[in-house]
Amino acid sequence: MSDDVLRIRTPISIKYQYSAGPRVSSHLLGLMDGRFVGKRCPVCELVYMPPRNGTCAKCGALLGEDVEVGQRGTITTFCVVNVPFLGQTIKIPYVSATILLDGADMGMQHLIQEVDAADVRMGMRVEPVWRPREEWQPSLENVMHFRPTGEPDAPFDSYAGHL
């Protein structure tokens, strides 16, 4: 029995080419310029930042005009990640938060740093810390992380509809 082959390793390698799509393209170009550019749904008029896959899922509609939203935002909810996993590029523990940028209707995921994880809370006001301009790529990773602004917390009602 001990000589039986019970397991084999057969590595799989396939190359894929992903497309951002024309609607996400203007958002990525905005990031190359230090701006947060989202898109408005032509049906329900809500602002998606980032514009996800180019659609408003609620309406089943292709997103329309560009809308630049504010640099600051509010933490709507978050979690403290304390588990290692393959491909992880950030040191644990860290806070992964949903941030509702001022003027956007959908939160986006990003990191919270420069604050103790235990002090992060729902409603906390935050601002981005951009990497040096010469390192910018068409990616949200141009923002290293968000950090507290020190403003008073946003009241729950102001973001309750965006959880």
Binding site: L28, V83, I90, S139
Partner: peptide
Amino acid sequence: MPFGMPVHAGAGG
């Protein structure tokens, strides 16, 4: 995946 931020850690995140 490209174009986003790799801040999640599986389903728990």
